[in-house]
Nucleic acid binder design. Structure first.
Lengths: 221, 221
DNA sequence: CAGTGCTTTGTGACTTCGTCACATACGACA
DNA sequence: TGTCGTATGTGACGAAGTCACAAAGCACTG
C-alpha cells in the first residue's frame, strides 16, 4: 500500500527537499481521533508533534473553580505548535486539548521531529512560524482578559464564531468559556444585545441580526 | 584581544561541542545597555537572539488605556526566548522589553542562530527549554488574570518580589503594573494588609511583617 | 400527550474590581 | 522654609463575578 503524501496539505512543507520529506512521511503515522477525545492535558506530556489534516482541536485552560478559557484552536493545515514547547521542554502541559470534531492528524515522533529540525531550514521555518503565531495570540489574550470589556470581547467572539448565515450554535456557558468569564455575565450581555436588536436567540443558538452594530462595538472604542 | 568565553555562564550551553561553540562566540558580540533602555517594542522586530550575561529585562504589555502588565523577566543566564518566536516568525512583537538594570548581553545574529539550531542538538534543547518555560508561564498568567482574586495575587507578588529582609521597593503603581490592575486597587488592598498588620509601608517601599499570613492567603484558597 | 428529568436560561442581591475626580501627604531641592 | 513633582488616600459609581434559586425548553418514556 502506498503512503499518501500528506505534506501537500501544508503550504509551509510543500517545498521540503525530497530527501527530507520522504523520511518525514515514512516515520510518522496518520491517526484518527473521535470528537470529544482529550488529546493532552495537565500531567500528560504529548508524545509527538501533531499536524492536523482534518478537524479542529480546542486548547483550553480550566481553573480551580471550574471556570474555563479557550486559548486557541488548531485547524486543518496547522500544527499544535505549543505542544512542541512541552515536547521539547522540561515541563508538563498546563492546558488541555480536546478534539472538537473528528480529527485526522499526522503524528511525528519526537526523534523524527528533532532530526527534521536539524536538517531542514524549511521545516524550521514552518515550526517557528506556527509558534510565533500562537505566542502572539497568547499575548493578545492576556491583553484582552486584563484590559478589555466583556461586551466588546463578546461582540468580537460572536462575529468570529458565526457561520455564513450569521449563526452561532453555542450555549451561554460555552461562550463564557470562550472568553474566560461567567455564564451569568454572558446571559446579561446577550440580553442587552437582544434588547438593542443586534441579535436574536433561541436555546443553544444565536443569530446575528445587525452585524454592523456588533462590528462597531467590537471595533473602535 | 581574546574573546571571553561567555558560554560558561549558561548551564545549557556548557556542553556545546567546540566546533559549535567557537563560531557561536566568534559571530556574536557582547552588548551593553543602560538601565531603562527599550530593547524592543511593538513595531520593532528584534534583530538578534539575546542571551543575558548580567542584569534583568522586563517584558510587559501596555494597553490602549495605558494600563500595563508584566509578562515575565529575563535574568542573567537566560534567553529572551519569546523574542525568538518573533525573530523566526512572521509577526512583529506585541510586547515591549525594557532593561530594568544595566544589562550585558550576547547578541547572536539571526543567521548564526539558525545555523546553531541546525547543527547542535544541545543548543536546540537550550532554546526549546527556555521557550517552554516562558509559554508555561504565559498560561499561568492568563489563568491568574482571568480567575484569581487580586488580594491573593498581590500577596503572591509581594512574597515573590521581597528581598532577603522582606522589603519590596516598589510604588503602588508599579505593583499595579506587575499584576495588570489599577493603582487604586493596589492601594486599597495594601491598606487592608496594613490594617491586619501583615505589612508596613512607607512611600515607595513595603515591608512584610507577617510573611506567614501572606503565604496563607497566597496559598490555599 | 402527560409526566419526568436534564439542560439551558433568567434574575436579584451582594461582593469585588476598575474608573474618575480630586484631596492630601511626602520628600527633594532651591 | 517654601515649592513642586511624585506618591498615596478616598468617595462615588459603573462593570464584572458569585451565589442561590426560579423558570423554561427539550428529549424521552410510558
Amino acid at each position: 500500500m502506498s503512503i499518501p503524501d500528506w505534506t501537500s496539505h501544508f503550504p509551509g512543507l510543500r517545498k521540503l527537499e525530497p530527501s527530507i520529506g520522504r523520511p518525514l512521511v515514512e516515520n510518522s503515522k496518520v491517526v484518527k481521533l473521535a470528537a470529544g477525545t482529550r488529546i493532552f492535558g495537565p500531567g500528560q506530556s504529548p508524545e509527538a508533534y501533531l499536524l492536523l489534516l482534518d478537524g479542529t482541536v480546542r486548547v483550553q485552560q480550566v481553573s480551580e473553580t471550574g471556570r474555563e478559557i479557550v486559548l486557541y484552536r488548531v485547524s486543518a493545515g496547522e500544527s499544535c505548535a505549543l505542544t512542541t514547547a512541552c515536547l521539547m521542554g522540561y515541563e508538563e502541559y498546563q492546558a488541555e486539548g480536546v478534539a472538537e470534531t473528528d480529527v485526522q492528524a499526522v503524528a511525528i515522533p519526537r526523534t523524527t521531529f528533532d532530526e527534521l529540525i536539524a536538517r531542514s531550514a524549511e521545516f524550521r521555518r514552518f515550526v517557528f512560524t506556527a509558534f510565533s503565531m500562537r505566542v502572539t495570540n497568547l499575548f493578545k489574550i492576556i491583553d484582552e482578559v486584563a484590559f478589555s470589556r466583556v461586551d466588546i470581547r463578546l461582540a468580537q467572539k460572536l462575529l468570529e464564531l458565526a457561520d455564513s448565515q450569521g449563526r452561532v450554535a453555542l450555549t451561554h456557558q460555552q461562550l463564557a468559556s470562550e472568553l474566560g468569564t461567567a455564564r451569568e455575565v454572558i446571559s446579561r450581555q446577550l440580553h442587552e444585545f437582544q434588547r438593542r436588536n443586534w441579535i436574536s436567540a433561541t436555546r443553544g443558538e444565536i443569530s446575528l441580526v445587525s452585524i454592523k452594530d456588533l462590528q462597531k462595538l467590537a471595533g473602535a472604542p
